[in-house]
Amino acid sequence: MMKAFEVVSHPIDTQVYADYVLRPEAGAVTVFTGHVREWTNGVRTLYLAYEAYVPMAEKKLAEIGQEIEEKWPGTRAAIAHRIGELQIGDIAVVIAVSSPHRRDAYEANEYAIERIKEMVPIWKKEIWEDGEEWIGGQKKKPEGART
């Protein structure tokens, strides 16, 4: 059974989250998916490894859901983030938001991804042909490779 705010270690089925937020009073559902990108500023990523402090991450995702419902009354959200090894094109994160009218669903959805990047304890390591690095961490990327 899925949770509305969860960290998973299997491929994400976006429909599950879209279905979860859909209600009779919702006239709009936005579904954002974040994917593993191959090229970042000229550096080729082979794959990514995501790690999370799972219980805290799920708690923080749920907090984002509460923030959204307070800021945009009448919305409902569901968020899942995948951890483990992800290949190019894989879905790393899905955010589904429903609202009576489309504007709130778009705005709340973008808010959610910004908040995830600020404060949810999840980390990604980029693995390249010639090295690897935890993003956001202490080591430096190759010259000019900063995102």
Binding site: A57, I116, E118, V120, Q138
Partner: peptide
């Protein structure tokens, strides 16, 4: 200990 996060 939580290093700078990089989810998404």
């Amino acid at each position: 200990f939580i290093p700078p996060v990089s989810g998404g």
